[in-house]
């Protein structure tokens, strides 16, 4: 009887280790699965023939949105953003069309992969899904990506 108890207490850490290892293996498998699914979805979309676009909207006032400064690193990492905000794709509309507190600064064609990277970096954030306002040289921008 006593021996049984000893054996049981010796096996307990072993069982715990197996459960932890199982859990870890599960987490790793799910993470790898999500990564592969993500890559497959991008691959399927790239082949669909649709054209994702990047648009940048300028807001007159920051309001209650989170303001994040745009740095040179952002422009280096996302050349499309650079082209639209301060490069050859800048093509601002007049303030009076639509709602007067915002205007379109420009847009450009991007690949699905780049569109996703831009969406992840500058898209809606938090539980309320609010777009952060990107500040550059005193102006406030919203980065929009569209998937056809």
């Amino acid at each position: 009887m006593e021996e049984d108890k000893k054996l049981e207490s010796r096996n307990r850490p072993k069982t715990a280790a197996i459960i932890i290892a199982c859990g870890l293996a599960g987490i790793v498998a799910v993470a790898l699965g999500l990564m592969l699914a993500d890559a497959l979805i991008l691959y399927a979309m790239e082949g669909s023939g649709g054209q994702p676009m990047l648009y940048v909207m300028e807001r007159a006032e920051p309001g209650e949105s989170t303001v994040v400064p745009l740095t040179e690193q952002d422009f280096e990492r996302h050349p499309a953003l650079d082209a639209v905000i301060r490069g050859e794709e800048r093509n601002p509309s007049a303030w009076e069309w639509g709602y007067r507190d915002q205007r379109v600064i420009g847009g450009t064609k991007v690949s699905y992969r780049k569109s996703k990277a831009l969406h992840d970096a500058y898209g809606p954030q938090g539980e309320r899904g609010l777009y952060p306002l990107m500040e550059y040289e005193g102006a406030y921008y919203v980065v929009l990506t569209t998937w056809p």
Binding site: W97, G98, R100, L144
Partner: peptide, 12 residues
Amino acid sequence: EVLIESFGPDVE
């Protein structure tokens, strides 16, 4: 939204 802001009516 982008089309309205660029070429649409002045809402106000």
